[in-house]
Design a protein around this nucleic acid. Sequence first.
RNA 1: GCCCGGGUGGCGGAACCGGUAGACGCGGGGGACUUAAAAUCCUCUGCCAGCCAGGCGUGUGGGUUCGAGUCCCACCCCGGGCACCA
Length: 818
Amino acid sequence: MERYDPQELELKWQAWWEERGMYRAGGPDDPRPKFYALDMFPYPSGDLHMGHAEAFTIGDVIARYRWMRGYNVLHPIGWDAFGLPAENAAIQRGLHPREWTYANIAKQRETLRRLGYSFDWSRAFNTCDPEYYRWTQWLFLRFHERGLAYRKAAPVNWCPSCKTVLANEQVIQGRCERCDTPVTKRELTQWFLKITEYAERLLADLDLLEGWSEKVKTMQRNWIGRSEGADVVFEVEGVGPVTIYTTRPDTLFGATFFVFAPEHPAASALATRAGLEREFRAFLEEVRAETEVERLAVARKKKAFDLRARAINPVNGEAIPVFASDYVLMEYGTGAIMAVPAHDQRDFEFARENGLPIRVVVMPPGGGLDASTMTQAYEGEGTLVNSGPYDGLPSHEGKAAIVRDLQARGLASPAVRYRLRDWLISRQRYWGCPIPIMHCPRCGEVRVPDTELPVVLPEIKEYLPTPEGESPLARAEEWVRVACPSCGGEARRDTDTMDTFVDSSWYFFRYCSPREERPFDPAEVARWMPVDQYTGGIEHAILHLLYSRFFTKALYDMGLVPFTEPFPNLLNQGMVLYGGAAMSKSRGNIVEPREVIEKYGADTLRVTMLFAGPVEADVDWAAVSPEGVKRWLGRLWRTCLQALPRLPAPGTPPRGGSSLRRAVHRTVKEVTEDYETFSYNTAVAKLMSLLGVIQKEVTSAEPADLREALEFLILMLAPMAPHITEELWHRLGHEGSVHEASWPAFDPELAREEEVTLVVQVDGKVRERIRVAPTITAEEAERLALASPRVAQRLQGVRIVRVVCRPPGLVNIVTEGG
RNA sequence: GCCCGGGUGGCGGAACCGGUAGACGCGGGGGACUUAAAAUCCUCUGCCAGCCAGGCGUGUGGGUUCGAGUCCCACCCCGGGCACCA
């Protein structure tokens, strides 16, 4: 018998599919319902890795299944091709980032083809193509017009190794997301997108995303970090009124000192006033030199600077000392706080370190809290004490009452704050989308006119980042110098480039009309979006997924798109590990998709990924077996070839209710459910079982039944193993592609169980199993149960208290004392 | 510390609404075919008990129930997120 040779057969069908342009999305006249199946596009930092193979396999199964269910599917692919990682890798190899990037794209494209994915290649693009980033710039200008893109000087995250600033989202535990270098703070003028303006909507709309896991939604909620409290005004000696933010206005009477962030303008003003200018500058220097990692260290003394001034507590007129300290952040709240050491752990530590008084104002339910003996702050709720007229009120009532009374005096107002910061998008690096702004000495910031887009990334020899943090683009002197479109005078181009995440915040719109002379055709976007199923890794839970939601809402407000959420359904596949750890060069545990394909074929790789476990769970490649899958596909191959001579012509209707047909139809019912819920591992298990049944009957079954069985099995496997099923489908006598065939329909009558197992328990323990009809009555089931010799033996000499009967599956006989 | 997940055989994992725990596969044992190997096929495989009968078993301890992997309470462990955010 002819052997199953995946290599030859897979290449053959891949060529055939391409020739036929099989996976092109249908045009506006296509009568089928649409389905937009989107996979997070790859980053071309090398060839495809196993993580990609898993993600794209899942996405491909989703897309192919929808085709077979009669949908018009949009399943696009492209490359997220600008950015730091590609640039760093290129520099390491002494290559131009463009060269390196496009070479990797070609390599990945080849591997994606070899894996047999059903992409609509006609829509492919790269975010580093001028035809794409032209529209990234166009969108930036729309943001700029609305004040959603702006420049400001702020203390920002700086990676000394990448020599660029980073967004908050790119700092992981105080370290650079890409190179793990401890991040420092720098005071720089940078471009931001005003994502904070959307904080409330980004938070509230999470509730609409029923197709997202709770995990990702929680991560976004944490990241946005909404808190409710009050702004309260303190009069600070020598400065005037200063607003602070607190979530605990009920503890106002416990404020025993006041703290400014070191960068707060009032802090340096007070230091100057106290004649401590030089000392303060040294203090500030010290604070700035500190890396984020050091600042977050657990057992660390908070830096303190006594500003020798008093602040007046508005609730009781008390004068309290004023400090500057690095534990107060300029970027959150107002950059100034009231300190309540008894009820805030940070304030408590600061008070202890600096010998400041501690006053209890909230008594916990048990009582007995004493400032002189407490070893940590009490942050819970309780009853107000030492709080003048508010004594005796529970915390939540005290909160409301204190704010209300202060508000009447114009000294407080309820306030909501978010942890989320504006998105820092400018980068001092070469390989990114240029910011389409000019700086004119007379007109200030001037937008590059739409007609002059794209602002093309200049060709320069020296594209390495500069140590001073100036963008390499600044070296392209001729490119930088331009005439101001508004006054005609000499202006200079902005020399920063955009964060890669800007590019990826709108690519899914572009796929709808990738060659459009606009960012996208609104009609095509309305036709395809929102995305029906988005598939990708959880590592983007707060970066890409938050930014894309923000972009979509901003575009909605501009009237450019008719919806506010781009991805109502999100599937986060797990990671691919090896031996319990991420694959990495340093560990030497990398398995490449290419080697697996060469050894086993693409179909085996795909099915192995799917069979390994639930899609959301990590796959440990060391613990799964392509061998087993390969064996099974071989068995399928041999069974089909063995059956072939016996089979009637295609289309011969099977009849009757043989056990084979019942097994087939039951499997169709269950596997269809599995496909709908992405339970591919159990779907594969059921297909394996079905092949076992078919194999047993391959020489004895009714020929028409056998044909039906094999065809349905092949159809159900087609989305997962597209090549072998295509081959077998043709060998079974079909002309067209198996992937253009319809998903099999089951006959409910045949899918119904003919016999079920009646379990007989005595006192909850299984004592007997009897095969019965599913229609059995309670009385009949009980009679059969009691008639069983093994059960009767158990029941000798004991009294039956009751019989629980749940036909057709269960009878439980409860005995006295049992 | 707070918030999400999750703990089931030697391993990956099944188990609808509370109703046969361990589907399917890997690995392992035994056997067939073969001069031999590969490939393939058959068979056994949670633990204890020689077989049967039986007992024990889903992180730990309690509870609800005729019946709990599944529900409730307390705890332990693992993974992930957030965290000097006032």
